[in-house]
Write a protein that binds this DNA or RNA. Structure first.
Ligand code: SF4
Ligand code: SF4
Lengths: 138, 138
DNA sequence: TCTAAACAAGACTTATTTAGTCCTCTTTTT
DNA sequence: AAAAAGAGGACTAAATAAGTCTTGTTTAGA
């Protein structure tokens, strides 16, 4: 049970943008400082933009910036911009398991998923102490 | 972020054995009632046995039974008998990410992982309401 | 003591997912 | 117009998950 590499990248990226809140950063800059492969990062930023977490600016002088203050962006949002928090398939969507109608375990997974989502929603990007990998200063 | 299919099988299997606590069940029986492919289930039961969750009996009249009462077996144990609860690689083991020494996000994952493990440890097999898939009566 | 019913264990195979790259197009400033 | 950005889809390779196959060991009982 693990987040994807891509999701780790997304969080490091948002964390970096949180540090430089107010400034526009270009992909190459984010890539270097957050240690994320450039081309892959471009894709990730598109997802974050569609999710309303970052704002993109096209053309010369373009780049990305956080759409809101760091304290208003939590881990759950960023994670779910990249991948669903499923825990078990049936907890995301009943219809993904044919047994869900009668399964005795199913309701437990629904509860567990909600609790885990709450755990993730509790952490925001103002909570993170700066300095170190993913912040561009280490 | 999802448990493996194998882990879902393990939980259904333990749940079935919990229903028939006190009796020895043979692989074919568990397979039919918990809807788990027979050969694959054999592997899963080996892992559960090594983890001390079930007891195996070899030879004619052999089979499997729960090693303890259903209320003494929780979700976390069963899951971790099959796969680690990582959340993020670095939360399981620092050394798996070269950045962990300086990473500002790393401590957050450590906390999150512990909280998630606590969520899973809260559920035991006496909590599950019988009847339905994974119980052999549906 | 022989046989059949059970589990043990590891090698193997296939399908799916993850982690990325590549190429072409659009937008925007100068 | 040219150059500097991002958008988006097609594609590839590596890793992991899901499951089978084969062979061996243990045990009850005829
Ligand atoms: S818990 Fe029950 S419903 Fe959910 S996936 Fe497993 S079998 Fe299907
Ligand atoms: S959070 Fe930091 S330490 Fe953990 S995996 Fe991501 S980069 Fe590595």
């Amino acid at each position: 049970m693990r987040i994807k590499r891509e999701t780790d990248y997304a969080i490091r990226c948002v964390n970096y943008l949180a540090m430089r809140h107010g400034q526009i950063a270009v992909i190459g800059d984010i890539s270097k400082n957050a240690f994320v492969p450039r081309k892959f990062l471009a894709k990730i930023l598109q997802k974050l933009a569609r999710a309303g977490i970052v704002t993109s600016h096209r053309g010369v002088k373009g780049g990305f910036e956080l759409a809101r203050g760091p304290s208003l962006i939590n881990f759950l949002e960023v994670i779910e911009a990249i991948q669903p928090v499923e825990m078990n398939v049936c907890a995301l969507d009943d219809r993904l398991c044919a047994l869900s109608d009668t399964c005795a375990v199913h309701p437990v997974w629904i509860e567990v998923r909600e609790e885990v989502r709450r755990v993730l929603a509790k952490r925001n990007f103002a909570h993170i102490k700066t300095a170190g990998a993913g912040t561009g200063t280490g």
